[in-house]
Amino acid sequence: MNSKHREDEWQDLAPSLAKMEKKNPYLVPDGYFESLQSRIEQKVNSAQAERSRSKIIPMWTKYAAAACLTIGMGITLYLNLNQQKPSVNWAEIPEQEIVSYLEIHLDDSDTQLLFDQLNTQQINIRIENINNQDLENYLNQQL
């Protein structure tokens, strides 16, 4: 876009603004820009010094945190190892509760595992005790 085009655009868009001379009306202290660079550099240097100082503290805190973590893990491990496992007397668990548990948690692979653990004779006995209707119901549900 050339400057003539730009002037026309301004003229159409904002005639009062277009008439105005574009100049900087602000007052700035004498020699401001000459000293600005050194003041910025001073600030950067002090920010850097501050940063280096603060870097020392994290090194201490890192080691302290690592030590705390190791001690904490050690205590937890020690307590866990020494904790007595709860003894379970399987005989006291009612049969119905075992059945309910197995109904909820048993899956196909468990069923296979149970079959593998049983000997053939036990299986025969069980199958003989199942009537045809129950067997049919089972097959209807599972297949």
Partner: peptide
């Protein structure tokens, strides 16, 4: 870039001291 950045800040905040603080913050 100091002058360009300064003038952007100055026109936004008007006060010279505020603009001076801002321009230093920008460069940091």
């Amino acid at each position: 870039y100091q002058e360009k950045i300064y003038w952007l800040c100055r026109r936004m905040v008007i006060d010279h001291d505020d603009a001076d603080d801002l321009v230093q913050e920008v460069f940091i």
